[in-house]
Computed example of a mutant assay.
Amino acid sequence: MIDFKRLRYFVVLAETRHFGRAAARLHLSQPPLSRQLIALEKELGVKLIERGPRGVTLTAAGERFHIDAKAVLAALEQAQTNCRAAAAGTAGALSLGFTMCAAYSVVPGYARRFSAACPDVDVSLREVVSNDLSQRVVDGSLDAAIMFPGIFDRSLTTETIFSEPLCVALPRGHRLAKQRRIRIAQLAEETFVLAMEEVAPKFRAVIDQHCRSGGFEPVVGFEVQLQQTVLSLVNEEAGVALVPRSMSKARLAGVVFRELVDAPCVEQVLVWSRANRNPCLKQFIELVQGAEA
C-alpha cells in the first residue's frame, strides 16, 4: 500500500518541477523529500522523474502517475469531507412520515428549509395513515413523523410543532354554504363524515367534544382513514365535516370551507425515537425547534 504522504510529496514536486520549491511548500528540507521520492519510485518499480540542472522533468510514467495521484488525493479529501458531514448530519439520509393534514400545513416548509440547509441529505417524504406512523418510527423504518397527538410508545419523544383551528367543509350547494361563519349548533341535524377514532383518537375526540358543546352527538354517515377521503365524500354530498383549516388548500370543485365560530384547535406533533442515532435527524429536530422559537 503506497503511503499517501509520498503521493502528496510527488504531486507537489510534479507541480513545482523543482525540489527546492517543493520542499519549501511542504515545509521540509530537500534531503528528506528526495529520500521519499526515491522510496516511491522503488515501491512502484518505475522511474517517475528526471533530475536536471534547471529542475525536474517527469517521465512518461511520471506524467501518468501525476494525473492518477491527484485524483486519489482528491478522492481522499472528499472522503474525509463526506465522513465529517455524515457525522454532523449535514450529509446522509432522512426519512420523514406525515399525515395528509401535515402535507397541507407544515411539511412543505420544513422540507424546503431543511433541503436548503442540508443539500447533501437525501430526504424521503412518506405520507402514511396516522395510526401506522408511530410504529414505523419505533421499528426504525421512519426517522421521524409529523402527525396528530396520540398514545405513543414510551421509547418515543413528541413535541408539538403546529396548532390550527377546525373549519367546516360543506357541499357547495349546502344550505349553509353562503354563510361566512357557522356555529356548531347549526350542524346538529347534519350527517357527518368523520375520521375513524382508531386512526386519530385525539383528533376525533376534539370533534366529538365540540359537537357536544353544541348540544348534540354527531350523526355519523361515514368513518374513514384519510382526510382526503373525508373531503371526497363531502364533494359527493355524502355529509359535512370538521377538518383542520389547512385542508382548505385542497381544492375540490364541490366543497366550500367556512369558518367555525369558537373553533377548537388541533395540534400536530413531531415524533421521534430516543434510540435513533441518525445525525441527520438531530439536524432536522434542531431546524424544527428553531422555526418554533
Rank of each mutant, 00 (worst) to 15 (best):
C265S: 07
S124R: 13
L170T: 07
I146M: 05
A195Q: 12
R172D: 06
V224L: 10
E159F: 04
V106D: 04
T157D: 08
L194M: 13
L156M: 08
C83V: 04
A177I: 07
A263M: 02
I285E: 09
R183K: 15
L94C: 14
F19N: 02
E223A: 15
K42R: 14
T158F: 01
F10Q: 03
L252M: 12
E63Y: 02
D68W: 10
L7G: 00
L76K: 12
F216Q: 03
R112E: 15
A79M: 11
I207M: 05
E198H: 11
E259K: 15
R180N: 10
L176S: 03
P244F: 00
V230K: 04
V137M: 09
L156Y: 03
M147E: 10
R136I: 02
E236M: 05
G109D: 13
F203S: 03
K282L: 12
A14W: 01
K202S: 02
G239I: 12
P53C: 04
K42S: 14
M147I: 15
L48M: 07
D68L: 15
G239E: 07
V107E: 06
L133V: 09
S130V: 13
Q283W: 05
R274A: 11
S213Y: 05
I38S: 10
V138A: 00
V168A: 03
H174K: 06
N278M: 12
Q78S: 14
A88Q: 13
F203K: 00
P31K: 08
E189T: 09
S124I: 15
R84C: 02
I67G: 01
F152Q: 05
L166R: 00
A22F: 08
V193P: 05
V46A: 09
K42F: 05
S163Q: 11
E223C: 14
R126N: 14
A117I: 04
